[in-house]
């Protein structure tokens, strides 16, 4: 393990507090879990009266990126080497996997663990293990590029 030159404990904690505040706000005002994959998946289910808040949450997420990147474009740089086919496979895996496993980093990792849910804890351990194995293969076997 070499030096942790990119470690950002303070900024990451502040960002985490804001994410927690946003998730808590969605719970207090809408009574919903702030799981991004669940919010997106529900749009495809097209249940009446259950669409607009989902779309608006995702539009807010999108708008934040659009606005924030005008002032801090370096927050969105991609410094890992990934081909287009690798990104497509990754996207499909995240799309299908989060629906099958009914949650992602936000729904299971933050809200689920925050609710002390056994299911979400197991899910988080599961996706952390396979993410670590995947990064090991890409970085140590394939030389960091795919």
């Amino acid at each position: 393990m070499s030096t942790m030159e990119s470690f950002t404990p303070i900024a990451s904690t502040i960002g985490g507090l804001l994410i927690g505040t946003a998730a808590a706000g969605l719970l207090l005002f809408h009574g919903r879990i702030a799981g991004i994959s669940g919010i997106a998946g529900g749009i495809f289910r097209r249940e009446a009266g259950d669409i607009s808040w989902r779309v608006m949450f995702l539009v807010g997420l999108f708008a934040a990126g659009a606005a924030w990147s005008l002032f801090y474009p370096q927050d969105y740089v991609v410094e890992i080497s990934r081909s287009t086919p690798a990104l497509i496979v990754a996207g499909l895996a995240v799309g299908i996997g989060t629906q099958l496993g009914s949650g992602c980093t936000s729904g299971h990792g933050v809200c689920g663990i925050g609710r002390l849910s056994k299911r979400s804890t197991v899910a988080t351990v599961s996706f952390m293990i396979t993410a670590a194995l995947t990064v090991f293969v890409v970085n140590e076997v394939l030389g960091g590029s795919i």
């Binding site: 999108f62 990126g65 659009a66 996207g91 496993g101 949650g103 980093t105 993410a131 990064v135 890409v138």
Partner: peptide, 30 residues
Amino acid sequence: RLVLGSAIFGVGWGLGGYCPGPAFTSVGAR
């Protein structure tokens, strides 16, 4: 289903470096 789906998600997360939230907001950042 929970364990397998999460495992598939983890492969994609490690491969692409994005989970759903960061992906949506980074699309906004073009």
